[in-house]
């Protein structure tokens, strides 16, 4: 648990340092996520040489706990937003309609593009619900 949490923080720290050092227009945690994927991949290579085991094992418990309660983490910021609701109200219908219509359009455009391109590709249309890890 602690080793997993430390691993997440180390990756986030490395991500923040990378972003600031190179002046990248990216959030540090997103770079941290990429670094953790690389770290897990390297561990997987090492494990393959020296016997078995799951490469993500040290971080899987803490990652599943955090991601299983991801909604909780948006509550503090969300509460802060409640004090700006009058800002939304002041700008009236434009904001409400923009949010509703554009979110629906974005969802439909994304999912349709994903499916159409997937169908165009040869022999890749296996139903994804069978391929997932149900951990």
């Amino acid at each position: 648990m602690i080793i997993g949490f430390a691993a997440l923080l180390v990756c986030q720290l490395a991500g923040e340092i990378t972003v600031r050092w190179l002046g990248l227009p990216l959030p540090g945690p997103v770079v941290g996520m990429m670094l953790l994927v690389v770290a897990i991949a390297l561990r997987s290579l090492a494990l393959r040489r020296f016997g078995g085991g799951k490469a993500e094992a040290p971080v899987s418990h803490v990652a599943d706990s955090l991601l299983g309660n991801l909604g909780l983490l948006f509550v503090p910021a969300g509460v802060g937003v409640v004090q700006y609701l009058d800002l939304i109200a002041a700008n009236g219908a434009a904001i409400g309609i923009a949010i509703v219509v554009s979110t629906v359009l974005a969802l439909v455009a994304t999912v349709v593009t994903f499916r159409v391109v997937k169908r165009l590709l040869p022999a890749s249309d296996a139903p994804t619900s069978d391929a997932g890890d149900r951990a």
Partner: peptide
């Protein structure tokens, strides 16, 4: 303290990514 965990949680997205 809860808000802070958004960063580590974003890093943790690597795990489902790796599994899939």
């Amino acid at each position: 303290f809860v808000h802070f965990l958004l960063g580590p949680a974003t890093v943790a997205l690597a795990v489902p990514l790796w599994r899939n």
